[in-house]
Amino acid sequence: MKKIIPIIIACGTGLTVLAGYFFQDRLAPVLGLLIHWGISLVGLAGLIGIAYLVRMHFFRIARRQKGAFYSVIVLIAFFFTFITGLILTPHNAIYRDWVLNIQVPVEASLLAILSVTLLYASLYLIRTRGWTPMSVGFLVGALVSLILNLAVLQFQPGSMGAVWALFLRRLPLAGLRGILIGMALGGLIVGLRVFLAIDRPYEGE
């Protein structure tokens, strides 16, 4: 019984949401209610997650682990932002500016590090993967795509060069769609396995 109830709830909810796509007029209120419940639960899970995060940093400080100093900074920043947000609300201009003026430069610096990492990795691609058809194809593809997007090469409309350029521009799109179709099929099977109670993450299985 302990195992059957979660399965019934999960399958019943899944079936209702699926049926909602077919009978939108009749099931729209139920669907809206379920989605609202889902959002509330995800919000609650987010709060529990933040509690985990805070607890982890408290433990790190209490046990004087490596990097405990950073945990102190994290906790001070967290509680300051949290309490200020509660008092001023996120709509307050000063609070919003204060958060964004920290968040945006940090995000930008992370992206800068990322771009350097990617540049460095692309220079060492052959060393990482060797001379395989995939790595050579990736390098040639990236190079051709860069040249085409630089707009250095201009072709007369309707000429053979323009047709080839269009074909080359469409190639990545075709590959992307192929990968996405594969991932969509995989995602479908994963979802159906939960829906048919073959996989039961809510039971720890």
Binding site: L41, V42, L44, A45, G46, L47, I48, G49, I50, Y52, P201, Y202, E203, G204, E205
Partner: peptide, 13 residues
């Protein structure tokens, strides 16, 4: 994600 933490803990347990 908080939801992933909860599910992951449940699976591990």
């Amino acid at each position: 994600s908080g939801a992933l933490v909860l599910f992951a803990r449940q699976i591990v347990q």
